[in-house]
Simulated assay, not measured.
Amino acid sequence: MTMREAVALDVFGAAARLKVPVGAWRWAAAIGLVPPPDAAPDRWSTATVAAVDTEGVRAALVSTSARTAAERLTAALGDPLPPLRPAVTARMIGDLTRAGALLRLEGPMDTPVVHVDQVTALTRRRDLPALLDRHTLYGPDQAAVRLGLRRTDLDHFLPRTLLTPARTAVVDFGKARGGEVAVDLYRGQDVGRAAGTGWASARSGQLSWTAASWA
Rank of each mutant, 00 (worst) to 15 (best):
T152D: 10
S63L: 08
T64C: 02
W25P: 08
G179M: 07
L96P: 06
L163C: 03
D38R: 08
A70D: 09
T152M: 12
L185N: 04
R4F: 08
R150D: 12
L84H: 14
L61E: 02
T164S: 10
R177M: 09
R151M: 02
P159E: 00
P140H: 06
Q142W: 00
D133M: 09
L162R: 01
T46N: 02
G32T: 02
H156V: 12
A211Y: 03
I93M: 06
G32L: 03
T89A: 03
L185P: 07
A29S: 09
R43V: 01
V170R: 13
L147R: 07
A51L: 05
E55S: 03
D38A: 06
W209S: 14
A90Y: 10
T46V: 14
G32H: 03
G196S: 13
R43A: 14
D117M: 04
I93S: 07
A182C: 05
A90H: 09
T68G: 04
Q189S: 13
D79K: 14
Y186G: 01
A14T: 15
A28G: 02
G107I: 05
A60P: 04
A202V: 14
P41Y: 00
V57E: 11
G100L: 11
D117A: 15
R104Q: 04
A69P: 11
R160K: 06
V49K: 03
A15V: 03
R43I: 02
Y186M: 08
V113C: 06
T74P: 12
T210W: 14
G32F: 03
T120R: 13
V22A: 14
W199R: 08
L162E: 09
R85F: 01
A166R: 07
R203W: 01
Y138S: 00
G23P: 09
R104E: 13
V34S: 02
P112N: 01
E71W: 00
A70I: 07
T54W: 02
T111H: 13
R91N: 07
G178L: 00
L103S: 13
G100Q: 10
G94F: 05
L137C: 11
E180S: 05
A195S: 13
P83L: 13
E71Q: 08
R17V: 02
L84F: 14
S45F: 03
M109H: 04
P36C: 01
H135G: 05
R126N: 11
M92W: 00
R187F: 04
P35F: 04
A47L: 13
A90C: 08
R26G: 01
K19R: 13
W209F: 03
